[in-house]
Nucleic acid binder design. Sequence first.
DNA 1: AAATATACCTTGACAATCTATGTATTTCGT
DNA 2: ACGAAATACATAGATTGTCAAGGTATATTT
Lengths: 115, 115
Amino acid sequence: MKIRKELAKGSTPLLVLGVLARGEMYGYQIIKTVELESRQVFQMNEGTLYPILHALEMEGLLTSRWVQVEGSARKRKYYQITEKGRKELADERAAWDTYQTAVNRVLGGVQNAAT
Amino acid sequence: MKIRKELAKGSTPLLVLGVLARGEMYGYQIIKTVELESRQVFQMNEGTLYPILHALEMEGLLTSRWVQVEGSARKRKYYQITEKGRKELADERAAWDTYQTAVNRVLGGVQNAAT
DNA sequence: AAATATACCTTGACAATCTATGTATTTCGT
DNA sequence: ACGAAATACATAGATTGTCAAGGTATATTT
């Protein structure tokens, strides 16, 4: 299915861009945030997230910076969404709405919407 | 992501089971029906559909029968949903609702819900 | 007569995700 | 004080769903 492809490709990136649109965040934090906000529905894998973050950065949709945690040896890599990223997010949001609506139409409306 | 997998795996089968829940249909008709009802959003591939139909039949979610088209050499393979198929459909529908809700929550509500 | 639509099917390639693995630091419980 | 679990980054190989392409055949439209 045509749109399925775009959607499948964009499903996780959509969520990533979605949370980053509110402000910079580091990888582990993204996982926890998505987990929390989806009420445990999404348990994003590290092996899924990190390659996506790198890919989005390569595409210029995100930028990143290393931040040293105060009084600690630990470093975190914070990601910020770019203007291009915001445009992509808008596009993917629209695609998601289209997809969502289409599935619900085929299934006979949302749950039991009016006939 | 955990549920993503179920969904990805179940996305097209969900639509197939969804349309077959209304009555028996043959492959080509399923493609056209989904295309029409999704308003051209889904253009299901034959290479995607037929293997799925066969798999669903193997799992006992569908049954099929060949029907000779009246006054023609053409045969069509009609598929019917089974009781087991209806249960599966109910499960997948529920999973879809959960998924949909979770994405919308992470994205901050549907489209531009109240901040 | 040729092109398009209908109708079934399979195979090989590709792309997205997962599991597993690796390294290192920090915190919590006992 | 020690071990387990959580935090935090990353990559590689296997799995899986979908697609493009190819194949066969009939029916309809131009």
